[in-house]
Write a protein that binds this DNA or RNA. Structure first.
Length: 404
DNA sequence: CGGCAATACG
DNA sequence: CGTA
DNA sequence: GCCG
């Protein structure tokens, strides 16, 4: 239900963090259902759908629209903030600042002389029409080929993996995320900078925000929580040529656009192999799923999960648990694939768009929201047992699931 | 009524 | 503050 | 706003 996302967004602009989260949870539960909700009976017993959200849904089911939602849509402040934050590099604070100055349109911002945009925002405005257009799966795959070719020219044994929404099976996205790694520990050092240089040489690098890593391989044996750091990553805007996209319609573009190319937001992340599983999990998303998983790890298992590792709080020094017995990528991939195949038998997935917040409910064992005919009971039971028995592996099933 | 994921970098 |  |  897009309506829930709108309510969440509105709450976000009002700086009401709690309601915002609640609406997002509700939206995510609704999205994970196999079909659109037709009557209130269908959502009996589902988590995160409380009094307020149900009232809104009832309004929509009976009148086709909701008064409160209509009100928000018409609200001048909501419209302006939504517009401003749609620019890459502009968040709620900046949008609010501009709104308070009386600005209402993007044109007003660009013509206002007293506003200075940072580098990110300048790129955001420069490529606004392209970046705000959806990216198709075909375009994502085309970019994958281009980047893969570039990467292999530098490091033949490097592995590039599509992550983000496209890994979750989405047909469209607002950007394209890739994970890049090398089977040998430490070889990923500096790889990203080489790739960026090559993309620049090819003339397709329109914007680049590179974030280096202070991650030190030599300190790896002491895997203490405090020492953990982030991965090398870069946020790019790339130029995608028309001829490079497979499929009937090729490039997504406006009628009358004769440039023959478009700009696309691309993220590249380069973790060391032994963190690959966690990086993949984190970057595959979705955001809500990550939140749920981390809450579960901390509250129910006394563990801390992030994009780098899973830490066991009950053990000294927060020793982190490796998912890999060896740092060999092929072996890891193989084991994950077999687990994934196993998982797939248990999951009659009907919608891959979003986070199964519901799955988290299953794991907790906090009994079973009645899902109507979403899952048959036998499958439900087996799935629940399987997840409980394979808590660690569960973290990694996510990537495999959508890659079979 | 408190908690709601998480945190480094530019 | 904004990015992921 | 929803949950424990």
């Amino acid at each position: 239900m897009d309506v829930m996302e709108e309510l969440a967004e509105s709450s976000e602009f009002n700086e009401s963090k709690g309601p915002c989260l609640a609406f997002r949870q509700a939206a995510s539960v609704l999205k994970s259902l196999p079909s659109a909700v037709r009557c209130l009976g269908a959502i009996q017993g589902l988590p995160w759908l409380g009094e307020h959200t149900k009232a809104v849904m009832e309004e929509i089911l009976t009148f086709g629209r909701s008064f409160k939602v209509e009100e928000i849509r018409c609200d001048e402040r909501y419209q302006a903030l939504k517009l401003f934050t749609s620019v890459f590099g502009v968040g709620p604070k900046t949008a609010e600042k501009w709104y308070r100055r009386g600005l209402r349109s993007l044109k007003e911002i660009l013509t206002e002389p007293n506003i200075q945009l940072n580098r990110m925002q300048r790129a955001g405005f420069l490529y606004y029409s392209d970046i705000s257009k959806a990216v198709s799966k075909a375009e994502a795959e085309a970019l994958g080929c281009i980047i893969e070719e570039t990467v292999h020219w530098i490091a033949p044994d490097a592995v590039l993996a599509l992550t983000g929404g496209f890994r979750r099976g989405k047909e469209y996205g607002h950007d394209v995320d890739f994970l890049l790694t090398v089977p040998e520990m430490g070889k990923e050092e500096g790889l990203l900078l080489h790739v960026i240089d090559r993309l620049r040489d090819q003339g397709i690098l329109l914007y680049c925000d590179h974030q280096g890593s202070t991650f030190d391989v030599s300190k790896l044996p002491s895997c203490r929580f405090e020492d953990m750091d982030h991965f090398q990553k870069c946020f790019l805007i790339l130029r995608l040529e028309e001829g490079q996209v497979e499929g009937e319609r090729g490039l997504q573009r406006d009628p009358g656009d004769s440039r023959g190319w478009r700009a696309v937001r691309v993220d590249l992340v380069a973790p060391p192999v032994d963190r690959y599983a966690f990086a993949l999990l984190g970057w595959t998303g979705s955001k809500q799923f990550g939140r749920d998983l981390r809450t579960f790890a901390r509250k129910e298992r006394q563990m801390l999960l992030d994009n780098h590792a899973l830490y066991d709080k009950t053990k000294r020094n927060y020793s982190y648990r490796r998912l890999l017995r060896r740092t060999s990528l092929p072996i890891w991939v193989w084991s994950m694939w077999s687990l994934g195949r196993e998982m797939h038998k248990h999951l009659p997935l009907t919608d891959t768009d979003t986070i199964p917040t519901l799955y988290i409910q299953y794991i907790k064992g906090s009994q079973t929201p009645s899902l109507g005919n979403t899952f048959c009971h036998e499958v439900e039971r087996r799935f629940c047992r399987f997840i409980k028995a394979n808590f660690l592996q569960f973290y990694t099933f996510w990537h495999v699931l959508f890659n079979i």
